[in-house]
């Protein structure tokens, strides 16, 4: 059974690889509930980030994962939900 968990550490790594970080934002701070635009990421950065998550974890995220107001917490939950579905199916 696949027990992988997607964490904030994974998300920050992928954000940095795919889109860098805004100089005015501390990604190591308490960012879980901040919207991505508050973190300095526009929609393309989010698209690039979820694309990287999908190919690294072999999952497919719903389009509404990226709706306005998405936060690190909401993305992490969506990824872990997909991972558990994939694990149950295995």
């Amino acid at each position: 059974m696949d027990t992988r968990q997607f964490t904030i550490t994974d998300l920050k790594r992928i954000l940095l690889e795919g889109a860098g970080a805004d100089e005015a934002v501390d990604l190591d701070g308490d960012i879980l509930d901040l919207a991505f635009d508050e973190l300095g990421y526009e929609s393309l950065a989010l698209l690039e980030t979820t694309g990287r998550i999908e190919r690294e974890y072999g999952i497919s995220l719903d389009d509404d994962t990226l709706l306005d107001g998405a936060t690190p917490r909401s993305i992490i939950a969506a990824v872990n939900s997909r991972l558990s579905v994939a694990a149950d199916a295995a």
Binding site: L16, E17, A19, G20, E23, L44
Partner: peptide
């Protein structure tokens, strides 16, 4: 340049 600009 800031890291936000390099990947794009």
């Amino acid at each position: 340049l800031p890291s936000r600009l390099l990947p794009q």
